[in-house]
Amino acid sequence: MFAGQFVFCQLLEYLPRRAFQDCVRRYHGDQRLRGFSCRDQFLTLAFAQLTYRESLRDIETCLRALGPKLYHAGFRGRVSRNTLADANRVHDWRIYADFAQILIRQARQLYADEPFGATLNQTAYALDSTTIDLCLSLFPWAEFRRRKAAITLHTLLDLHGHIPCFVHISAGKLHDVKILDTLPIEPGAYYVMDRGYLDLARLYRFTTAGAFFVIRSKRNRDYRRTQQRAVDKATGLRSDLSIRFNSPRSVARYPDRLRRIAFHDTEHDRRLVFLTNPFLLPAWTVAQMYRSRWQVELFFKWIKQNLRIKAFYGTTENAVKTQIWIVISVYVLIAIVRKQTKTERSMSDILQILSLTLFEKMPLFQAFSDENSRNRETPGHNQPSLFDL
């Protein structure tokens, strides 16, 4: 019989504790509610995410049922719904945002060599957003429409490993394109975006910063062709042009030439037109990169189905942002554990296993072992193994 640590404790060993305390000190997190520290809050909300708790009362009931196991799992404060509600209100959400970035950097190093569908060695990102509906009477600070509240999660996903490396939480009124003003631009990296982000002046920032973009074009763009390249139409490509805009306003916003690639998507029987600024990249690779953009949509789908991100344990802006950043931390933690333990289990499988074994005493690798893999169903062909549901 294994007499070591709980599975929950083994999971927490992948979290850099000293780095977490540095984040706490940076924002003076433990100066309030000294009987319930920021670490207690993080452990409590991580437990809630891993075990699908529905409410503060649900969290309190389940944790108190564990009795003395809580102390051995690292909890030091007394868990109650009122104390947790106060912590969600007063502990600065930036503590958990900064800590999530530390985990993100660790995960990106582990997944740096993961393929993503396009033959590309450089860093590639997909940018998109998702809206989470809220009740206006409970969340008045997140007013979206006249009778509706919402928040928007703007996410930049590293396509090598599907790790969210930039997350911005805003009220639902913020237009997607405005997030480009705060987006950190990495020279030499590729950014894949849908046409909702098409703003020529903002896209020109990528060119001047030495970065590359692939974006779906809108119709009725006034341009002139300066060069035409041959394409293999059997691959779905229809044209590959170098262009310049004719409109004085467009020229003022983007004075350089652009590349315009037309592609026929046979799966959905539609014509797609891409604008991009790398001229040496094969046109087929550009089309494949845009196709990889759906990974960020899978990421949104996955966290909404597997983690508590559509319902919140508090109604203040601080509580909502705290919960979202802990959701991101839990997601990245599972990705790190999946890589470090070298398991072939999907992220969804790992979460299901952890929900039942957190306070069992067994080696972590044994919990993820797949002795009956021959009897398992084959995962769907249209989703990568990281997101298998």
Rank of each mutant, 00 (worst) to 15 (best):
44 T>H: 01
361 K>Q: 14
127 L>E: 05
50 L>R: 06
127 L>Q: 09
115 P>A: 03
28 H>I: 02
292 S>M: 08
88 N>H: 01
189 A>N: 01
170 S>V: 12
55 S>T: 11
128 D>A: 06
306 N>Y: 14
12 L>F: 08
329 S>Q: 10
238 R>A: 12
233 K>G: 07
107 A>W: 04
6 F>Y: 15
327 V>R: 00
106 Q>L: 00
70 L>R: 14
297 E>C: 02
328 I>F: 15
133 D>Q: 13
90 V>G: 02
108 R>K: 12
152 T>Q: 15
64 R>L: 15
132 I>A: 08
90 V>W: 07
237 L>P: 06
11 L>S: 00
163 I>D: 04
247 S>A: 10
253 R>T: 03
283 A>R: 06
320 V>L: 09
129 S>K: 07
289 M>H: 04
198 L>S: 06
294 W>K: 08
241 L>R: 09
198 L>E: 12
31 Q>M: 13
252 A>R: 11
94 R>F: 11
149 A>D: 05
256 D>H: 10
254 Y>H: 11
90 V>N: 01
27 Y>R: 13
112 A>G: 03
302 W>S: 14
69 K>L: 03
273 V>R: 08
263 F>D: 02
226 T>K: 11
384 P>Y: 02
145 R>M: 14
59 I>V: 15
164 P>G: 09
171 A>N: 11
29 G>R: 11
281 L>I: 12
250 S>D: 14
370 D>K: 10
315 T>W: 08
358 L>D: 00
74 G>F: 08
365 F>Q: 15
336 I>Y: 06
242 S>N: 13
317 E>C: 06
187 P>K: 06
159 L>F: 02
15 L>T: 07
242 S>L: 15
8 F>P: 09
293 R>E: 12
356 L>M: 07
2 F>K: 12
252 A>C: 09
285 T>L: 03
154 H>F: 07
162 H>K: 14
381 H>Q: 13
226 T>S: 12
237 L>W: 03
29 G>S: 15
110 L>A: 09
357 T>Q: 12
1 M>Y: 04
221 R>D: 09
19 A>P: 03
332 V>R: 03
27 Y>V: 12
